[in-house]
């Protein structure tokens, strides 16, 4: 399950991105209890106390169950390790450009310690009307019964907005991140939605590269996923061997093309959409 709205820590609170989004998150209703910026312990920002270390922040605010990391990519490795060792169970990693080797280590280390990393290169998650942890623009999301899981930020906003126009709202949206190695897979995010009572239909936004969508198709075929899924895979027109913006969006000789993914999803009984704009109509048929 996703963390409830008990207490959120912002690592990198006083930086440009951290400060901007902390204010956005608070005005959305997210309970931000503390921030960490090394060297700024003892100060405060917008009435949020700032600490030098995660350990000190947790000690003062034991209700913290989630941390969102806005630290620049080359320092993010240490920040995420610090959150894991601080015992935080959900860590939302926003930065883009964390080296793969570090991400590999972090994801495995976190798992060993019982923590989950959403991302890296994730826009976070949002429970419309209740809380958001990350950078998603709130306007596009209205409360509803559709679970949205995605590898891409802006595409998530586009689809949430298209659903909103048809009077459809979101129960929860989870951005798993655009990097090649991420902590929470599309399948794990879908499993969260399977257990979420508010979610009736799941929309999955995948893209070229990797095998996360294949994993979902296999689980669906095996009967492990009960709720209807509508999927769109970005990158039908992508060439081989070129990275399309996201570090994880690359077609290699080992496969990962949109065409292959769509074929597998279809054969697993998952509805696929040719374009993000046709998703709302497909969802309507399933509600």
């Amino acid at each position: 399950m996703l963390p409830g709205n008990h207490g959120v820590l912002v690592q990198g609170l006083t930086g440009r991105e951290g400060a901007f989004h902390a204010i956005q998150m608070m005005s959305y209703g997210t309970k931000i209890k503390a921030g960490v910026t090394p060297g700024k312990g003892g100060t405060s920002f917008e009435n949020i106390p700032v600490y030098d270390t995660v350990k000190e922040a947790i000690k003062a605010h034991p209700e913290i169950s989630c941390s969102v990391v806005f630290v620049p990519a080359r320092y993010a490795n240490d920040a995420i390790l610090e959150a894991v060792d601080g015992g935080i169970k959900w860590i939302v990693a926003i930065p883009e450009g964390i080296p793969l080797k570090d991400a590999l280590y972090l994801v495995n280390y976190a798992r060993l310690k019982g923590s989950k990393i959403l991302g890296p290169n994730s826009p976070g998650f949002i429970v419309p009307g209740s809380m958001k942890v990350g950078i998603m623009p709130s306007d596009a999301f209205v409360p509803g019964r559709i679970g949205l899981v995605s590898r891409s930020g802006t595409l998530t906003y586009e689809v949430a907005n298209a659903l909103k126009k048809k009077g459809l709202g979101i129960s929860v949206a989870i951005g798993v991140g655009g990097d090649a190695i991420v902590g929470v897979s599309l399948l794990e995010a879908i499993e969260i939605m399977e257990l979420d009572e508010r979610t009736e239909v799941i929309v999955m936004l995948g893209e070229i590269g990797g095998t996360m969508e294949e994993e979902v198709a296999i689980a669906k075929s095996a009967g492990a996923l009960k709720k209807p899924i509508v999927a769109y895979i970005a990158g039908m027109a992508a060439p081989q061997g070129k990275r399309m913006g996201h570090a994880g969006a690359i077609l290699t000789e080992f496969g990962g093309s949109a065409q292959e993914k769509v074929k597998l999803l279809k054969s697993a009984g998952i509805n696929t959409s040719e374009s993000p704009m046709t998703i709302p109509d497909q969802v309507m048929k399933l509600i």
């Binding site: 891409s152 930020g153 802006t154 595409l155 655009g178 893209e207 070229i208 990158g235 399309m244 969006a249």
Partner: peptide, 8 residues
């Protein structure tokens, strides 16, 4: 803007 939206 955004890799996913650009691809789509």
């Amino acid at each position: 803007n955004g890799a996913g939206l650009t691809m789509s």
